[in-house]
């Protein structure tokens, strides 16, 4: 009984996280600077990682965590890559 309830709770939380992630789109679109957008996308990425983890628990598909870990790595890489690339348009890379 509690297991089913817990799964539902995880799914509902994941849905709420999706709503919070969608809120980030406002900043990603509005800007005004590249860094603002990058920041919004980075937060969105972190939220995606959490959503994947919550789905892994809620749907009993633990291998989602694999994907979450890879996503977290790519998210970090993206933040570093773009933040370095915006300075002098890649001249310092």
């Amino acid at each position: 009984m509690t297991a089913d309830l817990l799964n539902d709770i995880f799914l509902v939380t994941a849905a709420l996280f999706v709503v919070l992630a969608i809120m980030m789109f406002y900043r990603a679109v509005a800007g005004p600077t590249t860094q603002d957008r990058l920041l919004a996308v980075n937060v969105l990425g972190t939220n995606t990682v959490v959503i994947l983890a919550l789905l892994a628990a809620g749907l009993d598909e633990p291998w989602f965590l694999d994907i979450a870990l890879i996503y977290a790595l790519l998210n970090f890489l993206m933040a570093i890559a773009i933040s370095k690339f915006t300075v002098e348009r890649g001249g310092v890379l």
């Binding site: 890879i70 790519l74 970090f76 890489l77 570093i80 890559a81 890379l93």
Partner: peptide
Amino acid sequence: QGGAIIGVTVLMLAFA
């Protein structure tokens, strides 16, 4: 994915 992560590790070093 494994191969992608190995590649990404090198890219990460390259970016940093």
